[in-house]
Design a protein around this nucleic acid. Structure first.
Lengths: 214, 214
DNA sequence: ATGAACTTACTCAGCAGTAAGTAACTTGTA
DNA sequence: TACAAGTTACTTACTGCTGAGTAAGTTCAT
C-alpha cells in the first residue's frame, strides 16, 4: 500500500486526536445514532465535511474512537505493568474508584455498549471481542490465584468472570442515572469481593435453588 | 378528567396493544433513536400517521411502551403474589432463567436503559425511578431476612441491592452480544448467591483493599 | 350526523455523504 | 534557492434521503 506521509504531519495528527476526543464526548452524550457529525465538527471548529475528510464516514469514526481509547488505555497500563492474579482484582476495584471521577468516559462506554446490542450495530463486533478478552483475562487471574494456593480452579470461574464485568457495568449505568443513590467505588468493591470470595472459598447456597425452567 | 369512551372500544384497544407490542420490538431491535414510526407501523399494517393518531408523538409512544410493560408485569405478579424476603432472591434467579428464553424483551430493556443515560433522553426519568424502586424492594428483602434471623441488617445492604440488579443487567448485555459465551441463568444465580452470602454472612476481605483515590 | 379510526399527501427539518474549489504546505528538480 | 507540480486540509454548496409531525379528506360504526 502507498505509505501516507500525510499522517505523519504532527499538526494533522493533533487534529485527528482532537476530533477523536470530541467524538467520544458527543457519542457518549448523545449516543451514536443521535449524535451528529456536525456536533463533533463544532467542537473542533470545523465543518462536518472536514471531519469526513479525516475519517471517511461516521461509522469509521466510531470504530476509530473505540480503538483509540483502547490504545491509550493499554499505553497507560504497559507504562505501569499489566496486573495478574489477585492484583488484577485490586486493579478493577481501583478502576471503579477512579471511574467515579470520570463520568464522561464511563458514559461513553455505557451508552455505546448498550447501543451495540441492536441489530447490525457497527460497534457490535468490537464489544463482543472486548468482553471476550476481558472475561478471559479475569478468568486467567482466577486460575493464577488458585494455582498459587495449590487448588484447582472451580468451574464457577467462567460465571464469576462474566459477573464481575457485569456488575461493574451495571453499577455504572445506575450511577450515571442517579449518582446520589449509588456509590460507584464502594459498591463495586463490595460486589467484586463477594464474587471473588464465592469462587475462592465457596459456601453452601444461601438461597436454596428453586425448581426451574433451566 | 374526561373519560374517553373512545378508548373503550375493544377493537381499538386491541389495536393500541398491537402497536405497543410492535413498538417494543422495534425499539428493542434498533433503539429509540434509530427505530422509526414507519418500522412500527409496517408491523401492524398501518401508515406511520395511523400510529401517531393513537399516540400523538414518538416520545409519547415510548413512554407508553414502558408503562405498558410494567402494568402487564405487575399483573402477572399480583396474579401469583409479590415475593418478599428470601423468596424475592429466588424470584430474581428464576427471572434470569426465564429471560434466557426471551431475548426480545431482554434486548428492549438493555438497549433502552443504556440509551436512557444520554442527555435529555425521554426514558431517563422512567429508568431512574425504576432502579430506585427495585433497589428499595431488594433492600427490603434483605431487611426482612435479617429480621427473621434476629440480626440487624448490615450497612452493605445498599451496595448489595444495587449490585444484584447491576449484575443481572450486565450479564444480559454480555449474553445478548454472545449467547454462546455466557450462560445467563446459571451465571446470574451464581452472582446473586455470592452477593446475598456476602451480606448475610460476611467474611474478611479476600483482596486486601488497595490504597486509593476514594 | 357525529366522531373515531384511519389514509393520502404534504411540509419541513436534519443529516450523511459528495463535488468542486482554494489556500497552504511538501517535494522533486534544475 | 527557487519554482513548478502535486498533495493535504480543509470550506462552501449542494444532493438526496429519511423521518416526525400535520392537515384534510374518507370510511365506518353508533
Amino acid at each position: 500500500m502507498a505509505k501516507r506521509q500525510a499522517r505523519s504531519r504532527p499538526e494533522t495528527l493533533r487534529k485527528r486526536a482532537e476530533i477523536l476526543h470530541a467524538a467520544m464526548e458527543i457519542f457518549g452524550a448523545k449516543g451514536f445514532a443521535n449524535g451528529t457529525l456536525a456536533d463533533i465538527a463544532d467542537q473542533v471548529d470545523m465543518t462536518h465535511a472536514g471531519v469526513l475528510h479525516h475519517f471517511g464516514s461516521k461509522t469509521q469514526l466510531l470504530l476509530e474512537v473505540l480503538t483509540y481509547r483502547d490504545e491509550t488505555d493499554v499505553a497507560d497500563l504497559v507504562e505501569q505493568h499489566i496486573p495478574g492474579g489477585l492484583e488484577l482484582f485490586r486493579h478493577l476495584v481501583r478502576t471503579a474508584f477512579v471511574n467515579a471521577h470520570r463520568a464522561g468516559i464511563v458514559q461513553t462506554f455505557a451508552v455505546l455498549s448498550g447501543e451495540s446490542v441492536t441489530d447490525d450495530h457497527p460497534a457490535r463486533a468490537y464489544f463482543q471481542e472486548r468482553y471476550r478478552n476481558l472475561r478471559a483475562e479475569v478468568g486467567r487471574a482466577f486460575e493464577t490465584v488458585c494455582a498459587e494456593r495449590g487448588v484447582t480452579a472451580p468451574d464457577t470461574v467462567g460465571h464469576a468472570s462474566a459477573a464481575i464485568l457485569a456488575v461493574m457495568d451495571g453499577l455504572q449505568v445506575q450511577w450515571l442515572l442517579d449518582p446520589e443513590a449509588v456509590d460507584l467505588g464502594p459498591a463495586s468493591e463490595f460486589a467484586i469481593e463477594a464474587i471473588v470470595s464465592a469462587v475462592l472459598d465457596p459456601r453452601p447456597p444461601a438461597i436454596a435453588t428453586p425448581d426451574l425452567p433451566r
